[in-house]
């Protein structure tokens, strides 16, 4: 060790060459997220007559690497709202903390006589997302907010990194928008058909979508979380496994591993 504290703990210049300090920004510009790093894939959700079912798998990918396999991407906000997150995991964690502090502050003022419902939370989150995109510092997520609105009716809406919002009887983010939406819309094409769908049917439908997504989405896995929100509260299961898989369809497809070439 020499007498220069600045040099301690640094690679020796005579061995490794001059230290590249370019990453140690002093007066450079603030850096914002330009692209997501660790990502979650699809979230799917569907309304039924008494509530909403929402699901997302437990995988967080780092590019093509399946990096974390026990990541919970559904967050229960209170007894009537669940938020599902797709996209960047660290931004999801930031939003999680934001919701946590919101919940604590909300309990200070209004006790429990009028808890924030799904519609309130969606409005809040979409304004957060829009503000951040307007600052060119987006939260790289696509969110689904599932739960009950102020009249205790099923509520399902989406907000993305641009602050775009929309609501529908069925919603899916990411790959799910391509693969799951058509399946969901077959059973629940419009708002009227929501009344004809039972909880059991909705759960079955969402599980079917998770299976199709696992078959076709390379950034997905067979462990997932699923939540059912009704007046009775939130039933959140975070360690479900896909059932009744059938890879028969893969027989004739090149690239699924059954053929040599």
């Amino acid at each position: 060790m020499n007498h220069l504290p600045q040099a301690w703990g640094r690679p020796r210049d005579d061995v490794y060459g001059a230290y590249d300090s370019s990453h140690l920004q002093t007066s450079g510009p603030n850096q914002h997220t330009q692209s997501p790093v660790v990502t979650g894939t699809s979230v799917v959700a569907v309304k039924f007559k008494d509530g909403v079912v929402i699901a997302a798998d437990n995988l967080a990918s780092y590019g093509s690497l399946a990096r974390f396999t026990d990541v919970k991407r559904l967050r229960r906000f209170n007894s009537q709202v669940v938020v599902g997150f797709g996209g960047d995991v660290s931004d999801m964690q930031y939003l999680d903390r934001l919701l946590n502090s919101l919940d604590i502050r909300e309990n200070y003022s209004s006790a429990s006589d009028s808890p924030l419902h799904a519609k309130n939370l969606h409005t809040y989150l979409s304004k957060v997302m829009y503000k951040r995109r307007s600052d060119f510092n987006p939260l790289w997520n696509h969110l689904l907010v599932a739960g009950l609105d102020g009249e205790q009716k099923p509520f399902l809406a989406s907000a993305d990194l641009l602050g775009t919002t929309f609501a529908s009887s069925t919603l899916a983010t990411g790959f799910g928008a391509h693969l799951a939406q058509p399946i969901l819309r077959r059973t629940v094409p419009d708002e009227d058909s929501v009344q004809k769908v039972t909880k059991e049917q909705a759960v079955e439908l969402v599980k079917e979508c998770m299976k199709v997504l696992f078959y076709r989405d390379a950034r997905s896995m067979d462990k997932y979380s699923i939540a059912v929100v009704t007046k009775e509260g939130v039933d959140l299961k975070e360690d479900e496994k896909l059932e009744k898989q059938s890879w028969a369809f893969a027989e004739g497809i090149r690239g699924y591993g059954t053929q040599i070439n």
Binding site: H142, T173, R219
Partner: peptide
């Protein structure tokens, strides 16, 4: 949202190869 899930590896992260 195509821009969230482009399928491409993170720009400054490791690539496919």
């Amino acid at each position: 949202m195509a821009s969230v899930f482009s399928g491409a590896p993170p720009m400054s992260g490791p690539g496919y190869s």
